[in-house]
Amino acid sequence: MQAKENNKNLKRYTIVTAMDNEAGVLSQLAHLFSRKGYNIETIAAGWTVDQNVTRFTIEIYSDEERIKLLCSQLRKLVPIHYVEILDPSKSIRRELMLVRVHAADRASRNEIIQIGNIFRGSVIDITPDTITLSVTGDDQKTQAFEELLKEFGIIELARTGIVAIERGEM
C-alpha cells in the first residue's frame, strides 16, 4: 500500500489467469507475486465451465514495464493456461461485500435500509440491534457503500475480492 502511495506511476491492474485445478496451484501463484515484490490487493478464484480449471482474478498495483515481466513469469508456471491483463474499458469488475452494522433504533434501521436500496443491496439478516446487508459492485461502489455505513458503526465487513470478465464483442 505504501509503495502505491509513494509512486505515482503505479496503476491498478486486473489480471485474469486460468490454472489446472489441483492442490498447490494457489500457493505457486501467490508465491510468484510475493517473490517479485507484489502485494496482492484482491484475489478471487473458482472453477470455470471445466471443473478441472480454476480461474483467478487478481488485482495489483504495478507499472507498465513490470507488469509485462510479471505476466511472462506467470506464463512459465506449468499449471497456467493463460494470463491476460484486462482493459478496464472493455471489462466488467464486480465484488460482493457483506457488512453488519449497528441498528439499535428505528431511525437508523430505516436509513440503513434506504442506503441499501440506493446501492441495490439487500438485507440478508436482521436482529434487534444489527442489520447485515450484501451489496455487489466494483470497488468504487462497495467503497462508497462502506463510507456511508461508517457513521452507524460497522461491526464486521467481508469482501470477496474483485472478479472480472471481458465484455462481449459488439
Binding site: D20, S72, R75, K76, L77, V78, I80, H81, Y82
Partner: peptide, 13 residues
C-alpha cells in the same frame, strides 16, 4: 493431457 496442452499452447516450460 497436460503435456498435450503445453505443446499446443507453445507453453514456455
Amino acid at each position: 493431457k497436460r503435456i498435450s496442452r503445453l505443446i499446443e499452447t507453445h507453453h514456455p516450460s
